[in-house]
Simulated assay, not measured.
Amino acid sequence: MTSTPPPPDAPQPSPAMPPGWENPAVRADRRLVEMLQELRVLQTGVQIVFAFLLGIAFTPRFTELTDDQQDIYIATLLLTVVAAAVLATPVALHRGLYHHPAKTRIVTVSTRIAQIGLVLLASALTGAVLLVLDVVLGTAVAVPIACVIALTFTGLWFVLPWSVRRAATHDQD
């Protein structure tokens, strides 16, 4: 991913400026802009999953789903809606608190909210995979595969960043 340029009103780096030239306000602006761009990508994925789930309910075969499959469907649909709301919250915060002096706090809160949104999105995607595989292959095959999917999300989206952050912290010591 490429780095986002600083806001137009931010001081521009020059060769004379040392690394880490950003003041806290400029750094917070940059981080918020980067996060909002990342969330824009995630929001598209959530919308695609939501559209897929909405379409399922209007297919003739939907009435053939078992009660358990309909429960998975409803839980997945609701997880997707809540993920969309949570992942859009940093945007709402940014709009609602535009030019607010506590930009660093806004970034911190938005980061936590985005992490919650990732958990919800991973759960929704896992639920969608579980539903489709349950219908196509049966529960005995679907559940273990969905568990592997959930573990994959956990590893890539949470454990990997944590371990990279931890290693970087140890490298600085």
Score class of each variant (00 low, 15 high):
71 D>Q: 08
83 A>L: 08
90 P>L: 09
91 V>T: 15
62 F>A: 08
84 A>E: 01
100 H>Y: 13
69 Q>G: 07
70 Q>E: 12
63 T>I: 07
94 H>C: 03
65 L>T: 05
84 A>V: 02
98 Y>L: 14
69 Q>T: 00
77 L>T: 00
97 L>P: 00
94 H>R: 01
79 L>H: 08
59 T>C: 06
65 L>Q: 03
99 H>A: 12
95 R>M: 14
87 L>G: 01
92 A>N: 00
86 V>K: 02
100 H>A: 15
63 T>K: 02
89 T>M: 15
78 L>H: 00
101 P>A: 13
71 D>V: 11
72 I>P: 06
74 I>R: 09
65 L>G: 08
84 A>H: 05
95 R>Q: 10
83 A>I: 10
98 Y>N: 03
82 V>L: 12
85 A>C: 08
68 D>A: 14
68 D>N: 06
99 H>V: 07
75 A>Q: 04
74 I>W: 13
60 P>N: 12
93 L>Q: 00
76 T>L: 11
80 T>V: 09
64 E>S: 11
66 T>Q: 05
92 A>V: 06
96 G>Y: 07
77 L>W: 07
60 P>H: 11
90 P>V: 07
96 G>C: 08
94 H>S: 09
65 L>K: 00
90 P>Q: 00
78 L>Y: 06
74 I>D: 08
85 A>F: 15
101 P>T: 13
80 T>N: 07
64 E>F: 06
60 P>K: 10
70 Q>M: 14
76 T>D: 10
71 D>M: 08
77 L>C: 04
63 T>H: 10
95 R>K: 04
66 T>W: 11
88 A>S: 13
91 V>M: 15
93 L>C: 02
77 L>V: 05
58 F>V: 07
73 Y>G: 02
58 F>E: 09
74 I>T: 12
91 V>D: 05
74 I>M: 14
86 V>I: 14
76 T>S: 07
67 D>I: 12
69 Q>L: 11
98 Y>M: 10
60 P>S: 12
74 I>A: 14
89 T>A: 15
98 Y>W: 14
98 Y>E: 09
88 A>M: 14
66 T>D: 05
95 R>W: 15
69 Q>W: 03
78 L>K: 03
86 V>A: 04
88 A>W: 15
75 A>R: 02
72 I>G: 05
94 H>L: 00
73 Y>V: 04
91 V>G: 10
92 A>C: 07
82 V>W: 01
75 A>T: 03
71 D>I: 11
74 I>Y: 10
78 L>R: 01
75 A>K: 03
88 A>V: 07
88 A>E: 04
65 L>F: 15
71 D>Y: 05
87 L>H: 08
58 F>A: 10
87 L>W: 05
76 T>Q: 07
89 T>H: 05
100 H>T: 02
79 L>Y: 11
82 V>E: 00
96 G>P: 00
73 Y>H: 01
98 Y>I: 06
98 Y>H: 13
79 L>K: 01
64 E>V: 01
97 L>V: 06
69 Q>F: 10
75 A>N: 02
64 E>H: 06
84 A>F: 15
76 T>Y: 11
89 T>D: 02
65 L>S: 06
63 T>F: 06
78 L>Q: 00
78 L>F: 13
69 Q>I: 08
58 F>N: 05
60 P>F: 09
73 Y>P: 02
